[in-house]
Amino acid sequence: MLLTISGLPGSGTTTISRLLAEYYEVELISSGEIFRRLAKERGLSLSEFGALAEKDATIDLEIDRNQKAIAHSQDNIILESRLAGHMAEGVPNVLKVWIKAPMLVRVQRIQRREKSLSFDEELEKTVEREKSEALRYKNYYGIDITDLSIYDLVIDSAKWNQYQTLDILRVAIDSLGGPA
């Protein structure tokens, strides 16, 4: 089974993906981590690298092309990214999950993760980042990131902690036969 985990920044996709990968002992491929690594390698912040990606489509397109190839060629793997569900279109035996949380909750999580002192600064950066990504997804693929209709399961991570969310996902995954 292919499992895709998607959601906006701070929703908990990386945490949940890691827990699932550990529980099911499957590989996790995170495009967000790849994007962060590329930004760091260039000495840029996420928002600066996002702005660069708006001007240089090859950044996103290469990451997405790689993820799509993996989705169509490997089984028993977790793909985590904003567009993972879209990159797995047409793949049999896939469970597409969207993790959501309110903006303020997500920004508080990002603020803790980044050890930022300013909530307002993180809010501004998050809003800017999400606008940049939404624009790029619309321009590159015609994808409206707010349309969740392609997902099999949408979970609000503000309602449950990461272990409760893991339990919900385990029930869903196991009911479909889970990773072999």
Rank of each mutant, 00 (worst) to 15 (best):
I29A: 02
I29P: 04
I29R: 08
S30C: 05
S30L: 08
S30N: 09
S30M: 04
S30I: 03
S31K: 11
S31A: 15
S31T: 13
G32D: 06
G32E: 07
G32K: 02
E33R: 11
E33Q: 14
I34L: 15
I34Y: 10
I34A: 12
R36S: 06
R36K: 09
R37H: 11
R37K: 14
R37C: 10
L38C: 06
L38Y: 12
A39Q: 03
A39R: 00
K40E: 15
E41H: 07
E41N: 12
E41F: 03
E41C: 08
R42I: 05
R42C: 02
R42F: 02
R42M: 08
R42Y: 06
R42S: 10
G43Q: 05
G43H: 03
G43E: 02
L44V: 08
L44Q: 11
L44M: 15
S45C: 09
S45T: 15
S45V: 02
S45K: 11
S45H: 07
S45D: 06
L46Y: 10
L46G: 09
S47D: 15
S47G: 04
E48C: 05
E48Q: 06
E48Y: 01
E48D: 02
F49I: 00
F49A: 07
G50S: 15
A51C: 01
L52S: 00
L52V: 04
A53F: 06
A53Q: 01
E54H: 01
E54T: 05
K55G: 02
K55T: 10
K55R: 14
D56I: 09
D56C: 02
D56P: 05
D56N: 11
A57I: 14
A57R: 15
A57D: 14
T58S: 15
T58G: 08
I59S: 00
